[in-house]
Amino acid sequence: MREGAHPGRIAAYPAQNLSHEATRAEPRPLRDEVRRKTRKSTTMEPIIQESELPEPEATRRDANVTESSRANRGWWDRNADEYQIEHGTFLGDDRFVWGPEGLDEVEAELLGPPEELKGKDILEIGAGAAQCSRWLVSQGARPVALDLSHRQLQHALRIGGNVPLVQADAGVLPFKDGSFDLACSAYGALPFVADPVLVLKEVRRVLRPGGRFVFSATHPIRWAFPDEPGPEGLSVAASYFDRTPYVEQDEQGNAVYVEHHRTIGDRVRDIVGAGLRLVDIVEPEWPAWNTQEWGGWSPLRGNLIPGTAIYVCVRD
């Protein structure tokens, strides 16, 4: 069994030994505007929620690798309960959804035909409650679900299923070279790291030759628009080319949430610079059946501008 791949428990790698971050994502503008209510989990002992803390200040400023990792680890630990309550029904317990549009891997087949997933070793990065990994198990694959947030992985344990869970940093993957046939990440890790090339190089390292890595993130064009689901979210309000990170900070100026913007060109250069080959960029259209708003995602905006970009890469 691979290092850290132990079903039924969380294999943790100490934060002090890691310098880069991997989180599950629906941030701002990606993160989904988590409603600041105090809710109690009915299945696990609740932890301090963000709603119990002073309202952070939203700003645009630099945030390095260490600050980004620390902030997002804390944010997801505080907000995992709220997130799973709010979106658990949409995500399901064992469904592989690439983003708020609802594009399902069973239809998209971006990792390959389902029948070819059987027996494959697959790493899910920024797995959250491991919904995608649980679907992969149902296809006969052997996934490992990795996330920076211990609280998100506790939800994976709550839901159950025979999925190995690893708490670790996407920039320092605790696996041997060539451990996996495939890797995937649905809104995990890449939107939140200050050094995406480092994460991509790590993914390439743990993939076997011919292995595919598919990841989704907020479509970069969304950074030019307000994060609002209604008509006010349809007018350009900022420069698409402004790469200054979005930061929420406390009264002492310490970041409590960080998200990093990369243009489409930046993403392409990052992928190529990490030694991967980009074979496709998928921009899911908003389906007629999806009437749900998800933070800044909505049928109104989704029918006019893309909300998600999915990058399909290969390790030659």
Rank of each mutant, 00 (worst) to 15 (best):
N254D: 13
A15K: 03
V312N: 13
T23P: 11
E248W: 12
I48A: 15
S216I: 09
L18C: 04
W76C: 14
G126R: 00
V137H: 08
P14K: 10
I48T: 14
Q154D: 08
L190T: 08
S41A: 12
R158A: 10
R70L: 08
T38H: 14
A15F: 01
E26T: 11
G8D: 12
E50T: 13
C313T: 15
R315L: 08
V206D: 04
A255V: 07
P196Q: 11
P114T: 04
Q152V: 13
P100G: 12
V144C: 11
L153D: 07
L173T: 05
G171L: 05
G4R: 12
V97S: 00
A11C: 15
L146W: 09
P245N: 09
L276S: 00
V65G: 06
T59M: 12
V197M: 12
E115V: 00
N290M: 03
S19T: 07
C132S: 10
R31E: 07
G112Q: 15
G102Q: 05
P229N: 05
A156Y: 03
P56S: 04
P196C: 14
G160N: 13
R243I: 07
D121S: 08
G273C: 07
W294M: 05
R208H: 08
P287R: 08
E57H: 05
T263N: 09
G275Q: 03
G119T: 05
I305R: 04
E109V: 03
V65K: 02
S19R: 01
R24K: 12
P226C: 03
P113M: 05
A11I: 11
L157I: 02
L53F: 02
V34E: 00
V247A: 11
R73H: 06
W289R: 04
L300T: 07
A5L: 06
D147R: 15
S51H: 00
E107N: 10
S41M: 03
I305P: 05
F180M: 07
E202G: 07
V314E: 15
T308E: 03
W294P: 00
P229K: 07
D242H: 07
